[in-house]
Amino acid sequence: MVRTPLTPEERERGERLGRLLRDARGERSMVEIAAAAGLSAETLRKIETGRAPTPAFFTVAALAGVLDLSMDDLVAHCALLAA
């Protein structure tokens, strides 16, 4: 199966998600948050830096739970902006 390339808007949404998660993490270590969410620190690093702009829903939900973010806030923050 060939994955279609991401659009610039999808990449931007991934970058916004990464910034939101990084800001919510604050001073807590990446290793601490990743472990609490059941992820590797490298996976979290890729999401925070936008190198993994389309993480799985359950990955995002796990991080949101650990960081006390609501899924509604995530959607509102990361939704594609109207042209």
Rank of each mutant, 00 (worst) to 15 (best):
S40H: 12
E32R: 14
P8Q: 04
S40P: 02
L20S: 03
L63D: 01
A35R: 14
G65Y: 03
R45A: 10
A76K: 13
G18A: 08
A64M: 06
R19G: 06
L17E: 10
I33P: 04
T4C: 00
A79D: 13
S29A: 05
A76F: 03
A24S: 15
A37K: 06
A36Q: 13
I47V: 15
L6D: 09
L39N: 03
L67E: 05
L17Y: 07
D73L: 14
G18E: 10
G26K: 07
R11K: 15
G65L: 03
T49M: 07
A64N: 08
H77K: 06
M30K: 14
T7S: 15
P5L: 08
V31C: 00
A76G: 08
E15Y: 04
F57D: 03
A76V: 11
R16E: 12
I33A: 09
D68G: 06
L39T: 02
L67W: 04
A24K: 15
K46R: 15
D72Q: 14
R51I: 00
A76D: 14
A79G: 08
S29Y: 01
L80C: 02
L69D: 09
R28M: 00
G26H: 08
L20W: 04
L81R: 15
H77A: 15
G26W: 05
G38H: 02
V2E: 10
V75D: 09
A52G: 00
G14Q: 10
R3H: 08
L67Q: 05
P53H: 04
A56N: 03
M1N: 08
V75Y: 10
F58R: 15
M1W: 03
G50M: 05
A52I: 00
G26N: 07
D73F: 04
T54N: 11
G14Y: 08
C78V: 12
A35L: 10
E15T: 12
T49L: 13
A52D: 13
L80Q: 11
G14E: 11
V66F: 00
T59E: 01
A37P: 09
A79I: 10
R28H: 06
L44R: 00
R13L: 10
